[in-house]
Design a protein around this nucleic acid. Structure first.
Lengths: 201, 201
DNA sequence: CCCGTTCAATACGGTTGTGTATCCAATACA
DNA sequence: TGTATTGGATACACAACCGTATTGAACGGG
Protein backbone atom coordinates (compact mmCIF):
# COMPACT_ATOMS: atom_id res chain seq x y z
CA UNK A 1 0.00 0.00 0.00
CA UNK A 2 1.06 3.53 -0.59
CA UNK A 3 1.62 5.61 2.51
CA UNK A 4 -2.02 5.95 3.54
CA UNK A 5 -1.60 9.57 4.47
CA UNK A 6 -4.85 10.84 3.04
CA UNK A 7 -6.99 8.53 0.97
CA UNK A 8 -9.33 11.35 0.09
CA UNK A 9 -7.49 12.35 -3.06
CA UNK A 10 -7.31 8.73 -4.20
CA UNK A 11 -11.07 8.25 -4.04
CA UNK A 12 -11.61 11.59 -5.71
CA UNK A 13 -9.37 10.42 -8.51
CA UNK A 14 -11.19 7.11 -8.88
CA UNK A 15 -14.52 8.88 -8.89
CA UNK A 16 -13.31 11.25 -11.57
CA UNK A 17 -12.01 8.38 -13.64
CA UNK A 18 -15.28 6.51 -13.26
CA UNK A 19 -17.20 9.61 -14.22
CA UNK A 20 -15.08 9.99 -17.34
CA UNK A 21 -15.92 6.47 -18.48
CA UNK A 22 -19.61 6.62 -17.61
CA UNK A 23 -20.06 10.06 -19.15
CA UNK A 24 -18.47 8.78 -22.34
CA UNK A 25 -20.84 5.84 -22.40
CA UNK A 26 -24.13 7.45 -21.46
CA UNK A 27 -23.59 11.17 -21.65
CA UNK A 28 -23.70 13.77 -18.96
CA UNK A 29 -27.42 13.70 -18.25
CA UNK A 30 -27.76 9.99 -18.92
CA UNK A 31 -25.33 8.99 -16.19
CA UNK A 32 -26.60 8.96 -12.63
CA UNK A 33 -24.47 9.60 -9.59
CA UNK A 34 -25.00 5.99 -8.65
CA UNK A 35 -23.68 4.83 -12.02
CA UNK A 36 -20.50 6.76 -11.45
CA UNK A 37 -20.08 5.38 -7.94
CA UNK A 38 -20.68 1.82 -9.08
CA UNK A 39 -18.04 2.22 -11.74
CA UNK A 40 -15.58 3.63 -9.24
CA UNK A 41 -16.38 0.96 -6.67
CA UNK A 42 -17.92 3.30 -4.10
CA UNK A 43 -21.34 4.21 -2.80
CA UNK A 44 -23.07 7.54 -3.04
CA UNK A 45 -21.88 8.32 0.47
CA UNK A 46 -18.35 8.59 -0.82
CA UNK A 47 -19.52 10.76 -3.66
CA UNK A 48 -21.33 13.36 -1.59
CA UNK A 49 -18.43 13.37 0.81
CA UNK A 50 -16.20 14.53 -2.06
CA UNK A 51 -18.49 16.56 -4.30
CA UNK A 52 -21.48 18.73 -3.65
CA UNK A 53 -23.41 17.68 -6.71
CA UNK A 54 -23.06 16.18 -10.16
CA UNK A 55 -22.58 19.62 -11.66
CA UNK A 56 -19.68 20.23 -9.33
CA UNK A 57 -18.16 16.93 -10.38
CA UNK A 58 -18.52 17.88 -14.01
CA UNK A 59 -16.67 21.08 -13.40
CA UNK A 60 -13.91 19.26 -11.53
CA UNK A 61 -13.68 16.65 -14.25
CA UNK A 62 -13.38 19.36 -16.86
CA UNK A 63 -10.55 20.98 -14.98
CA UNK A 64 -8.80 17.67 -14.39
CA UNK A 65 -8.95 16.51 -18.01
CA UNK A 66 -8.00 19.97 -19.20
CA UNK A 67 -4.95 20.09 -16.97
CA UNK A 68 -3.95 16.59 -18.02
CA UNK A 69 -4.26 17.49 -21.68
CA UNK A 70 -2.15 20.61 -21.40
CA UNK A 71 0.48 18.65 -19.49
CA UNK A 72 0.57 16.02 -22.19
CA UNK A 73 1.01 18.71 -24.78
CA UNK A 74 3.75 20.44 -22.87
CA UNK A 75 5.54 17.11 -22.65
CA UNK A 76 5.18 16.36 -26.34
CA UNK A 77 5.99 19.80 -27.67
CA UNK A 78 9.79 19.70 -27.49
CA UNK A 79 10.01 16.35 -29.25
CA UNK A 80 7.77 17.40 -32.10
CA UNK A 81 9.26 20.84 -32.50
CA UNK A 82 12.85 19.72 -32.99
CA UNK A 83 13.08 16.21 -34.27
CA UNK A 84 11.90 15.05 -37.68
CA UNK A 85 9.41 15.53 -40.45
CA UNK A 86 7.24 18.29 -41.76
CA UNK A 87 5.16 20.91 -40.00
CA UNK A 88 1.89 19.13 -40.59
CA UNK A 89 3.24 15.86 -39.24
CA UNK A 90 4.10 17.67 -36.06
CA UNK A 91 0.77 19.44 -35.69
CA UNK A 92 -1.38 16.46 -36.57
CA UNK A 93 0.81 14.23 -34.47
CA UNK A 94 0.23 16.48 -31.53
CA UNK A 95 -3.51 16.42 -32.04
CA UNK A 96 -3.53 12.64 -32.27
CA UNK A 97 -1.21 11.75 -29.46
CA UNK A 98 -2.41 14.35 -26.99
CA UNK A 99 -5.42 12.17 -26.18
CA UNK A 100 -4.81 8.45 -25.69
CA UNK A 101 -8.33 7.28 -26.52
CA UNK A 102 -9.65 9.22 -29.50
CA UNK A 103 -13.17 7.90 -29.22
CA UNK A 104 -13.62 8.56 -25.52
CA UNK A 105 -12.02 11.96 -25.82
CA UNK A 106 -14.29 12.94 -28.67
CA UNK A 107 -17.37 11.83 -26.78
CA UNK A 108 -16.72 13.74 -23.60
CA UNK A 109 -15.25 16.67 -25.47
CA UNK A 110 -18.38 17.16 -27.55
CA UNK A 111 -20.43 16.59 -24.43
CA UNK A 112 -18.61 19.47 -22.81
CA UNK A 113 -19.04 21.57 -25.91
CA UNK A 114 -22.77 21.03 -25.94
CA UNK A 115 -22.88 21.83 -22.26
CA UNK A 116 -20.97 25.04 -22.92
CA UNK A 117 -23.27 26.04 -25.75
CA UNK A 118 -26.15 25.87 -23.28
CA UNK A 119 -24.47 27.38 -20.22
CA UNK A 120 -22.54 30.61 -20.78
CA UNK A 121 -20.44 30.20 -17.62
CA UNK A 122 -19.23 26.83 -18.89
CA UNK A 123 -18.57 28.43 -22.24
CA UNK A 124 -16.08 30.90 -20.83
CA UNK A 125 -14.20 28.09 -19.09
CA UNK A 126 -14.17 25.97 -22.22
CA UNK A 127 -13.07 28.89 -24.36
CA UNK A 128 -10.20 29.62 -22.03
CA UNK A 129 -9.04 26.03 -22.25
CA UNK A 130 -9.36 25.98 -26.02
CA UNK A 131 -7.47 29.25 -26.25
CA UNK A 132 -4.56 27.77 -24.32
CA UNK A 133 -4.71 24.70 -26.51
CA UNK A 134 -4.59 26.82 -29.65
CA UNK A 135 -1.74 28.85 -28.24
CA UNK A 136 0.31 25.70 -27.80
CA UNK A 137 -0.37 24.69 -31.36
CA UNK A 138 0.42 28.19 -32.57
CA UNK A 139 3.75 28.14 -30.78
CA UNK A 140 4.56 24.85 -32.45
CA UNK A 141 3.67 26.23 -35.85
CA UNK A 142 5.71 29.36 -35.33
CA UNK A 143 8.75 27.49 -34.13
CA UNK A 144 8.74 25.07 -37.02
CA UNK A 145 8.11 27.68 -39.68
CA UNK A 146 10.92 29.85 -38.36
CA UNK A 147 13.26 26.89 -38.09
CA UNK A 148 12.61 25.86 -41.67
CA UNK A 149 12.58 29.39 -43.04
CA UNK A 150 8.93 29.39 -44.06
CA UNK A 151 6.63 32.40 -44.19
CA UNK A 152 2.88 32.00 -43.88
CA UNK A 153 0.69 34.44 -45.76
CA UNK A 154 -1.97 33.93 -43.11
CA UNK A 155 -1.77 34.53 -39.35
CA UNK A 156 -0.76 31.26 -37.71
CA UNK A 157 -3.70 31.57 -35.31
CA UNK A 158 -6.07 31.39 -38.25
CA UNK A 159 -4.26 28.41 -39.67
CA UNK A 160 -4.44 26.65 -36.32
CA UNK A 161 -8.17 27.30 -36.14
CA UNK A 162 -8.57 25.68 -39.52
CA UNK A 163 -6.53 22.65 -38.54
CA UNK A 164 -8.63 22.20 -35.43
CA UNK A 165 -11.87 22.61 -37.35
CA UNK A 166 -10.81 20.04 -39.93
CA UNK A 167 -9.52 17.70 -37.26
CA UNK A 168 -12.71 17.78 -35.23
CA UNK A 169 -15.02 17.60 -38.22
CA UNK A 170 -13.03 14.76 -39.72
CA UNK A 171 -12.87 12.88 -36.45
CA UNK A 172 -16.64 12.85 -36.24
CA UNK A 173 -16.83 11.31 -39.69
CA UNK A 174 -14.14 8.76 -38.88
CA UNK A 175 -15.89 7.65 -35.74
CA UNK A 176 -19.22 7.36 -37.52
CA UNK A 177 -17.83 5.46 -40.50
CA UNK A 178 -14.49 3.98 -39.46
CA UNK A 179 -13.94 1.98 -42.62
CA UNK A 180 -15.14 4.61 -45.07
CA UNK A 181 -13.08 7.36 -43.48
CA UNK A 182 -9.87 6.08 -41.88
CA UNK A 183 -8.69 8.31 -39.06
CA UNK A 184 -6.62 11.16 -40.37
CA UNK A 185 -7.37 10.59 -44.03
CA UNK A 186 -9.10 13.90 -44.67
CA UNK A 187 -6.47 15.85 -42.81
CA UNK A 188 -3.61 14.24 -44.67
CA UNK A 189 -5.08 14.61 -48.12
CA UNK A 190 -6.21 18.22 -47.92
CA UNK A 191 -4.22 20.10 -45.32
CA UNK A 192 -0.94 19.84 -47.25
CA UNK A 193 -2.63 21.69 -50.09
CA UNK A 194 -3.64 24.51 -47.79
CA UNK A 195 -0.24 24.70 -46.20
CA UNK A 196 1.36 24.74 -49.60
CA UNK A 197 -0.90 27.55 -50.75
CA UNK A 198 -0.22 29.81 -47.80
CA UNK A 199 3.54 29.21 -47.35
CA UNK A 200 6.25 31.14 -49.14
CA UNK A 201 9.98 30.67 -48.97
CA UNK B 1 -60.13 26.01 -38.93
CA UNK B 2 -58.74 23.60 -41.39
CA UNK B 3 -60.99 20.68 -42.26
CA UNK B 4 -60.86 18.95 -38.89
CA UNK B 5 -60.63 15.54 -40.44
CA UNK B 6 -58.08 14.04 -38.08
CA UNK B 7 -56.36 16.23 -35.51
CA UNK B 8 -53.92 13.46 -34.70
CA UNK B 9 -51.30 14.54 -37.19
CA UNK B 10 -51.51 18.12 -35.97
CA UNK B 11 -50.75 17.21 -32.36
CA UNK B 12 -48.00 14.89 -33.51
CA UNK B 13 -46.50 17.80 -35.40
CA UNK B 14 -46.74 20.13 -32.43
CA UNK B 15 -45.20 17.52 -30.17
CA UNK B 16 -42.35 17.04 -32.60
CA UNK B 17 -41.80 20.77 -32.84
CA UNK B 18 -41.83 21.10 -29.06
CA UNK B 19 -39.40 18.22 -28.76
CA UNK B 20 -37.06 19.90 -31.22
CA UNK B 21 -36.95 23.06 -29.14
CA UNK B 22 -36.65 21.35 -25.79
CA UNK B 23 -34.00 18.93 -27.01
CA UNK B 24 -32.00 21.86 -28.32
CA UNK B 25 -32.24 23.58 -24.97
CA UNK B 26 -31.63 20.72 -22.56
CA UNK B 27 -30.41 17.83 -24.61
CA UNK B 28 -31.94 14.48 -25.26
CA UNK B 29 -31.58 12.99 -21.79
CA UNK B 30 -32.07 16.31 -20.05
CA UNK B 31 -35.54 16.84 -21.45
CA UNK B 32 -38.40 14.97 -19.82
CA UNK B 33 -41.53 13.87 -21.61
CA UNK B 34 -43.42 16.37 -19.51
CA UNK B 35 -41.12 19.19 -20.65
CA UNK B 36 -41.91 18.37 -24.25
CA UNK B 37 -45.64 18.21 -23.59
CA UNK B 38 -45.60 21.51 -21.70
CA UNK B 39 -43.83 23.17 -24.59
CA UNK B 40 -46.30 21.76 -27.06
CA UNK B 41 -49.28 22.68 -24.88
CA UNK B 42 -50.40 19.13 -24.15
CA UNK B 43 -50.30 16.67 -21.28
CA UNK B 44 -48.50 13.36 -21.16
CA UNK B 45 -51.72 11.65 -22.13
CA UNK B 46 -51.43 13.15 -25.57
CA UNK B 47 -47.84 12.07 -25.80
CA UNK B 48 -48.38 8.41 -25.00
CA UNK B 49 -51.34 8.39 -27.32
CA UNK B 50 -49.00 9.35 -30.16
CA UNK B 51 -45.67 7.78 -29.23
CA UNK B 52 -44.70 4.68 -27.38
CA UNK B 53 -41.72 6.19 -25.61
CA UNK B 54 -39.24 9.01 -25.74
CA UNK B 55 -36.89 6.89 -27.82
CA UNK B 56 -39.61 6.39 -30.37
CA UNK B 57 -40.19 10.13 -30.48
CA UNK B 58 -36.49 10.72 -31.02
CA UNK B 59 -36.50 8.36 -33.94
CA UNK B 60 -39.57 10.04 -35.42
CA UNK B 61 -38.04 13.45 -34.89
CA UNK B 62 -34.87 12.35 -36.61
CA UNK B 63 -36.85 11.13 -39.59
CA UNK B 64 -38.94 14.29 -39.71
CA UNK B 65 -36.03 16.70 -39.56
CA UNK B 66 -34.09 14.57 -42.00
CA UNK B 67 -36.91 14.57 -44.51
CA UNK B 68 -37.39 18.29 -44.07
CA UNK B 69 -33.72 18.94 -44.66
CA UNK B 70 -33.54 16.87 -47.81
CA UNK B 71 -36.65 18.61 -49.12
CA UNK B 72 -35.11 21.99 -48.47
CA UNK B 73 -32.01 20.92 -50.32
CA UNK B 74 -33.93 19.57 -53.25
CA UNK B 75 -35.73 22.89 -53.46
CA UNK B 76 -32.56 24.93 -53.30
CA UNK B 77 -30.46 22.83 -55.63
CA UNK B 78 -31.73 24.10 -59.00
CA UNK B 79 -31.30 27.73 -58.02
CA UNK B 80 -27.76 27.28 -56.83
CA UNK B 81 -26.70 25.03 -59.66
CA UNK B 82 -27.63 27.36 -62.48
CA UNK B 83 -27.72 30.93 -61.41
CA UNK B 84 -24.71 32.94 -60.28
CA UNK B 85 -21.34 32.84 -58.63
CA UNK B 86 -18.64 30.31 -58.00
CA UNK B 87 -18.77 26.69 -56.97
CA UNK B 88 -17.90 27.37 -53.35
CA UNK B 89 -20.55 30.03 -53.04
CA UNK B 90 -23.09 27.47 -54.13
CA UNK B 91 -21.89 24.71 -51.82
CA UNK B 92 -21.47 26.90 -48.77
CA UNK B 93 -24.71 28.65 -49.53
CA UNK B 94 -26.47 25.33 -49.56
CA UNK B 95 -24.96 24.36 -46.23
CA UNK B 96 -25.99 27.65 -44.67
CA UNK B 97 -29.47 28.01 -46.04
CA UNK B 98 -30.50 24.39 -45.70
CA UNK B 99 -31.10 24.93 -41.98
CA UNK B 100 -32.93 28.08 -40.93
CA UNK B 101 -31.58 28.24 -37.37
CA UNK B 102 -27.88 27.38 -37.38
CA UNK B 103 -27.58 27.21 -33.63
CA UNK B 104 -30.57 24.97 -33.03
CA UNK B 105 -29.62 22.76 -35.90
CA UNK B 106 -26.10 22.35 -34.64
CA UNK B 107 -27.30 21.50 -31.15
CA UNK B 108 -29.72 18.76 -32.12
CA UNK B 109 -27.49 17.54 -34.91
CA UNK B 110 -24.62 17.08 -32.49
CA UNK B 111 -27.00 15.47 -30.06
CA UNK B 112 -28.00 12.95 -32.70
CA UNK B 113 -24.40 12.32 -33.59
CA UNK B 114 -23.50 11.56 -29.99
CA UNK B 115 -26.51 9.31 -29.76
CA UNK B 116 -25.41 7.51 -32.89
CA UNK B 117 -21.87 7.06 -31.59
CA UNK B 118 -23.34 5.23 -28.62
CA UNK B 119 -26.08 3.23 -30.36
CA UNK B 120 -25.07 1.36 -33.52
CA UNK B 121 -28.66 1.14 -34.82
CA UNK B 122 -28.93 4.90 -34.67
CA UNK B 123 -25.56 5.15 -36.37
CA UNK B 124 -26.73 3.29 -39.45
CA UNK B 125 -29.76 5.57 -39.74
CA UNK B 126 -27.65 8.67 -39.31
CA UNK B 127 -25.06 7.44 -41.77
CA UNK B 128 -27.73 6.82 -44.37
CA UNK B 129 -29.05 10.33 -43.96
CA UNK B 130 -25.58 11.81 -44.12
CA UNK B 131 -24.83 9.76 -47.23
CA UNK B 132 -27.89 11.18 -48.96
CA UNK B 133 -26.88 14.63 -47.85
CA UNK B 134 -23.39 14.19 -49.24
CA UNK B 135 -24.80 12.82 -52.48
CA UNK B 136 -26.81 15.98 -52.96
CA UNK B 137 -23.74 18.09 -52.39
CA UNK B 138 -21.73 15.88 -54.69
CA UNK B 139 -24.30 16.28 -57.44
CA UNK B 140 -24.11 20.03 -57.04
CA UNK B 141 -20.34 19.98 -57.25
CA UNK B 142 -20.36 17.77 -60.32
CA UNK B 143 -22.93 19.87 -62.14
CA UNK B 144 -21.11 23.12 -61.52
CA UNK B 145 -17.68 21.78 -62.38
CA UNK B 146 -18.95 20.32 -65.63
CA UNK B 147 -20.84 23.48 -66.47
CA UNK B 148 -17.76 25.62 -65.94
CA UNK B 149 -15.37 23.16 -67.54
CA UNK B 150 -13.42 22.40 -64.39
CA UNK B 151 -11.68 19.15 -63.58
CA UNK B 152 -11.00 18.12 -59.99
CA UNK B 153 -7.88 16.10 -59.28
CA UNK B 154 -9.67 14.57 -56.32
CA UNK B 155 -12.92 12.58 -56.25
CA UNK B 156 -15.76 15.01 -55.59
CA UNK B 157 -16.98 12.79 -52.75
CA UNK B 158 -13.74 13.38 -50.93
CA UNK B 159 -13.95 17.09 -51.52
CA UNK B 160 -17.49 17.14 -50.19
CA UNK B 161 -16.39 15.27 -47.08
CA UNK B 162 -13.76 17.91 -46.50
CA UNK B 163 -16.22 20.75 -46.94
CA UNK B 164 -18.57 19.16 -44.45
CA UNK B 165 -15.78 18.55 -41.96
CA UNK B 166 -14.61 22.14 -42.19
CA UNK B 167 -18.14 23.43 -42.03
CA UNK B 168 -19.04 21.47 -38.92
CA UNK B 169 -15.78 22.12 -37.16
CA UNK B 170 -15.91 25.80 -37.98
CA UNK B 171 -19.52 26.09 -36.92
CA UNK B 172 -18.64 24.78 -33.48
CA UNK B 173 -16.00 27.48 -33.13
CA UNK B 174 -18.33 30.18 -34.40
CA UNK B 175 -21.02 29.24 -31.92
CA UNK B 176 -18.57 29.12 -29.03
CA UNK B 177 -16.91 32.44 -29.91
CA UNK B 178 -19.28 34.36 -32.16
CA UNK B 179 -17.25 37.55 -32.26
CA UNK B 180 -13.84 35.93 -32.58
CA UNK B 181 -14.96 33.63 -35.37
CA UNK B 182 -17.71 35.10 -37.52
CA UNK B 183 -19.86 32.44 -39.14
CA UNK B 184 -18.32 31.24 -42.35
CA UNK B 185 -15.00 32.99 -41.92
CA UNK B 186 -12.84 29.87 -41.80
CA UNK B 187 -14.62 28.32 -44.75
CA UNK B 188 -14.29 31.40 -46.90
CA UNK B 189 -10.64 32.03 -46.17
CA UNK B 190 -9.34 28.51 -46.63
CA UNK B 191 -11.60 26.47 -48.86
CA UNK B 192 -10.87 28.60 -51.96
CA UNK B 193 -7.23 27.64 -51.58
CA UNK B 194 -8.10 23.96 -51.54
CA UNK B 195 -10.42 24.26 -54.47
CA UNK B 196 -7.80 26.16 -56.36
CA UNK B 197 -5.20 23.51 -55.65
CA UNK B 198 -7.31 20.58 -56.82
CA UNK B 199 -8.97 22.14 -59.88
CA UNK B 200 -7.48 22.11 -63.39
CA UNK B 201 -8.85 23.66 -66.54
C1' DC C 1 -80.32 14.00 -33.14
C1' DC C 2 -78.11 10.01 -31.43
C1' DC C 3 -74.54 6.75 -31.05
C1' DG C 4 -69.89 5.17 -31.75
C1' DT C 5 -65.26 6.39 -32.15
C1' DT C 6 -61.15 9.08 -31.49
C1' DC C 7 -58.04 11.40 -28.79
C1' DA C 8 -56.41 14.10 -25.22
C1' DA C 9 -56.91 14.88 -20.00
C1' DT C 10 -56.80 13.01 -15.47
C1' DA C 11 -55.66 9.85 -11.94
C1' DC C 12 -52.75 6.38 -10.09
C1' DG C 13 -48.78 3.09 -8.95
C1' DG C 14 -44.22 2.10 -9.33
C1' DT C 15 -39.47 3.08 -10.26
C1' DT C 16 -35.39 5.77 -10.23
C1' DG C 17 -32.50 9.33 -8.65
C1' DT C 18 -31.12 12.86 -5.32
C1' DG C 19 -29.51 14.71 -1.07
C1' DT C 20 -29.11 14.36 3.98
C1' DA C 21 -28.50 12.31 8.39
C1' DT C 22 -26.60 8.75 10.83
C1' DC C 23 -23.52 4.98 11.64
C1' DC C 24 -19.22 2.48 11.68
C1' DA C 25 -14.39 1.33 10.49
C1' DA C 26 -9.91 2.73 9.86
C1' DT C 27 -6.32 5.84 10.67
C1' DA C 28 -3.69 9.60 13.30
C1' DC C 29 -2.05 11.01 17.36
C1' DA C 30 -1.10 11.19 22.23
C1' DT D 1 -3.16 1.47 23.88
C1' DG D 2 -6.78 4.72 24.23
C1' DT D 3 -9.05 8.43 22.07
C1' DA D 4 -10.36 11.73 18.42
C1' DT D 5 -10.99 12.43 13.71
C1' DT D 6 -11.54 11.36 9.08
C1' DG D 7 -14.06 9.24 5.39
C1' DG D 8 -16.87 6.02 3.30
C1' DA D 9 -21.27 2.98 4.00
C1' DT D 10 -26.04 2.59 5.28
C1' DA D 11 -30.62 4.23 5.92
C1' DC D 12 -34.17 7.31 4.97
C1' DA D 13 -37.06 11.03 3.20
C1' DC D 14 -38.40 13.20 -0.83
C1' DA D 15 -38.91 14.71 -5.57
C1' DA D 16 -39.00 13.69 -10.56
C1' DC D 17 -40.30 10.90 -14.06
C1' DC D 18 -42.40 7.12 -16.42
C1' DG D 19 -46.08 4.26 -18.13
C1' DT D 20 -50.90 2.65 -17.70
C1' DA D 21 -55.71 2.73 -16.80
C1' DT D 22 -59.59 5.32 -16.79
C1' DT D 23 -62.43 9.23 -17.83
C1' DG D 24 -64.61 12.68 -20.57
C1' DA D 25 -65.22 15.62 -24.48
C1' DA D 26 -65.31 16.59 -29.32
C1' DC D 27 -66.14 14.99 -33.65
C1' DG D 28 -68.19 11.91 -37.51
C1' DG D 29 -71.55 8.89 -39.48
C1' DG D 30 -76.14 7.25 -39.67
Amino acid sequence: MEPPKRRRSATRARLLEGALEVFAERGFHGASVEDICDRAGFTRGAFYSNFGSKDELVLALFQATTDRLLEQIAALLPDLANQPGTLLDAVLGLLDEAAPDQRQWHLISTEFTLHALRHPEAATALNQQRAMFRDQLTRLVEEITQASGLRLSVPPQQFVRLVIAVHEGARAQSLLEPDLVPAGSLEHTFLPLVLDAISRK
